[in-house]
Write a protein that binds this DNA or RNA. Structure first.
Lengths: 326, 326
DNA sequence: CTGAAAGCGCTAACAG
DNA sequence: CTGTTAGCGCTTTCAG
């Protein structure tokens, strides 16, 4: 690969001038043209490794998420990548599997690579952001808030839970259950609270039997749905706390011949590739892509030196009601 | 951040010795211990940007795919990332959107960043790998073959198409249709050929009416499935050429009260989050993860200097038959 | 086995 | 506006 020195020689200028051309500083029109021509001729592209070493910052950001295979994070990742690449930044994909130690390893690498910033959906409340923050690099938290004083993009989980439950009430269902993720995860607890809000507002009693916490996965949804159906007085509708729980619950319902809307289902999160007719299930669409886009934009602002106090953006889910009400 | 010099000073050795410790070269036990202790104390991590500049190669690989939101590529990406991170490599995610120019931009960046290799599902037959190959960096092609002399990991599309059709025949279906992606895409044509193979082998005639090409998307699957159902003599089963077509077809069937297995469905590709019971549909599971894993391993071998002639690995799909035969 | 020293390619003072 | 120069932190000969 050609270097800045090769270009300088061909264009009969100093290496510094070539650098200036590629960094937008003022250079006389003639020299600029000469450098451009020389660079073109040599097919010169600035060596980013050298630039990174010198500038102590690379045009790379890290995206740390639990698992790219969760379509929610897939969609978010796509939003991040679009904004980043548009701005000339590359995105390193880091799957933490919700393990704090994996996460820390990635964060160490981000430092060692001089990456210019990090977007992270933390693995847990014990996630350690101290090392990365100590370097002064900007961090934006997505999906979950953190105890750290960093920018964040989250959604209003309580409102989403309420919207889902409200819609089922509106459709005429009487016994509406809730299946959520682990109760110690605050997004799960918030969504459950929203479900309670809606029931209470509608003058319904909260049957504790109908509020269940599980894991944020398909298996969790399956197990709990089966338990609910085995109840002496089973629910006639259910709010699923996330997309995967929703998938599991619907699978079990289908196996029991209770394909929605025979039993009402409202899912918090999209079902990107559901084989159900799109209208059979109420979905509170989470703005995953928008979340990624917003986080990436905030991060880029920080990278460019924005120094205002940490901001928290709260996005709302968007209700897509089933169009086949009961 | 601490540098190699800080560690050297504290351990009372030369910087070169510190470097040797972190690169596995021979160092006397005492010095090794001293360096380890000093590094620990200073929380030293080697600066990768500096290492990259010096070595002309970074511990980063690029993964260039059309779209991370296609679950097939999502799964593949996960396989790549797992192998790479295990080996200490990071993965840069590059969505080409099947556009050759975006792809080229990413490839340029891979060069400029001194990335050590590239895994690519090419955007088209006109993809230009010359620049990256000219640098001597290894490239592994996935999903699609290329005209270049590089390692490749593909799957046997024809066999997958045949397996899908065979299974429907075995289950007793009589009129088996095929809905594929655009006929000019060779993976789509191959799968259709496999469907024909199976029908012919079973002594069935090929009704041209039942072979349809569309787009590789949910909408395409919906449209064509609706057309097929409107036929005077509709099919009683269908092979879907990829996961998204399968989703669309099943949606339409469900809407018509023909939930599988009332009409037989075999899908080439997984339905990661299907809300159907897992047993209602035959799936030829494509080894997307394995493909990613294999490609990453091959790439790492090349990065480590493996110099044998280019290899092509052909993976087979794995049949998961519906367990509720007709 | 170990240290000294020379860069990898670029940027950013600092003069001019 | 432009050139000179000194590194960024690491690896790797080359001596010893």
């Amino acid at each position: 690969m050609a270097t800045i020195y090769d270009v300088a020689e061909l264009a009969r200028v100093s290496p510094a001038t070539v650098s200036r051309v590629f960094n937008g500083t003022n250079v006389s029109p003639e020299k600029l043209a000469a450098v451009r021509a020389a660079a073109e001729k040599l097919d010169f592209t600035p060596n980013r490794a050298a630039r990174t070493l010198r500038r102590q910052s690379s045009e790379v950001i890290a995206l740390v998420i639990p698992d790219i295979e969760n379509p929610y994070f897939t969609e978010m990742a796509r939003g991040v990548e679009d904004v980043a690449s548009e701005a000339g930044y590359s995105v390193v994909l880091c799957n933490s599997d919700a393990q704090v130690d994996k996460e820390s390893t990635y964060l160490r690498i981000a430092i060692a690579e001089n990456m210019s910033g990090v977007i992270i959906a933390t693995a847990s409340e014990t996630s350690d952001l101290d090392p990365i923050l100590a370097t002064g690099r900007p961090v934006v938290a997505v999906d979950r808030g953190t105890a750290y004083d960093v920018d964040g993009v989250v959604m209003s989980n309580r409102a989403a839970g309420a919207a889902a439950a409200q819609e089922l009430i509106r459709a005429g269902y009487r016994r509406i259950a809730y299946i959520g993720g682990p109760s110690h995860i605050d997004t799960a607890a918030e969504r459950a609270a929203g479900w309670q809000d809606a029931l209470t507002a509608a003058g319904r009693a909260i049957d504790p039997e109908l509020q269940r916490f599980s894991t944020f996965g398909v298996e969790g949804g399956r197990e709990v749905m089966a338990e609910l159906l085995a109840l002496p007085e089973p629910p006639d509708a259910v709010v699923a706390g996330n997309n995967l729980i929703g998938v599991g619950a619907i699978q079990v319902l289908t196996e029991h011949g209770l394909t929605p809307p025979a039993v009402g289902v409202a899912v918090i999160g999209s079902l990107p590739f559901t084989t159900l007719s799109p209208n059979a299930v109420t979905v509170v669409r989470l703005p995953a892509r928008h979340m990624g886009v917003t986080a990436a934009r905030m991060l880029l602002e920080r990278i460019r030196g924005d120094d205002q106090p940490a901001r928290m953006v709260v996005l709302r889910g968007e209700l897509r009601s089933a169009s086949i009400p009961r």
